[in-house]
Design a protein around this nucleic acid. Sequence first.
DNA 1: CTAGGATCCTGTCAGC
DNA 2: TGCTGACAGGATCCTA
Length: 283
Amino acid sequence: MPELPEVETIRRGLSKLIVHQKISKTTILCEKSFVGESQTATVTNLRRYGKALIIDLDNGKSLMIHLRMTGQLIFDPTNRERFAAGHPNENFVDTLPNRQTRVILELENGILYFNDQRKFGFIKALDTKEVENDAFIKKLAPEPWSISEEDFYNKLKKHSKSPIKATILDQTIICGLGNIYADETLFMSKIHPMTKSGEITREQAKTIIKNAKEVMEKSIESGGSTMRDYKKADGTRGNYLDKFVQVFGREGKKCPVCGAEIIKIRVAGRGTHICPTCQKEPK
DNA sequence: CTAGGATCCTGTCAGC
DNA sequence: TGCTGACAGGATCCTA
């Protein structure tokens, strides 16, 4: 799914479109995709905690949205170009609703579709004052921009037997990274993903934080994964990852740093992309 | 307590 | 063509 940069891209894009707009009707096409009571109220603000998006309403309620692996938010304004972001696939440009549409929110100025192929994502209605007490939100660690090097290093020591990739994917240790940015961060840091977290030095911990910020900032600046990148002007399909990715999904291609062949391995149950020359295997 | 694997679900792709 | 298993930008649950 969308990782932190994609959710931030959605937050920025949707903010311009739906703040001050009233949700007049909610259609739930898949029960498990919507938790709690549907709301009829006006959007006041959009916030983000790691990969979770919060839509605050003027009736004391909020909609918490987690896209997980395949979630997307697609806003079809009346008389304007569509804004689509999240997991990039044909739904961005498809006629909606379609069979992957799970929830439809009708606003004054357009329709917001929540599409989710695998149904792992959800929209959850809760009291605005309870957002920060939500079990998931509450245990999130700080994002790379605010985490302290000391805090991060100590957590690595606590999970010393786990491979570093598994550790940085854990949102209660450092928040925001997913499979793509974890691979990119470790590549930039020249650290093999199988390295035991306990073997990571203070200097390396600092480097990981710095590179996580750098790659995610670059992604946010490039506009994340939206319809604009997905559908090129000539009608062909683009890949927004090309704008900043160095190893993810590039197995068989050359490492941009040393020219060696990038390989794909399996770490912590996830497909993992490395340069075997730049990222030395731990002993 | 941590670590690792299975699990939720739909769809696509490689291999036979 | 049809079948099978592997895998997928996430997080939780279960077991050892």
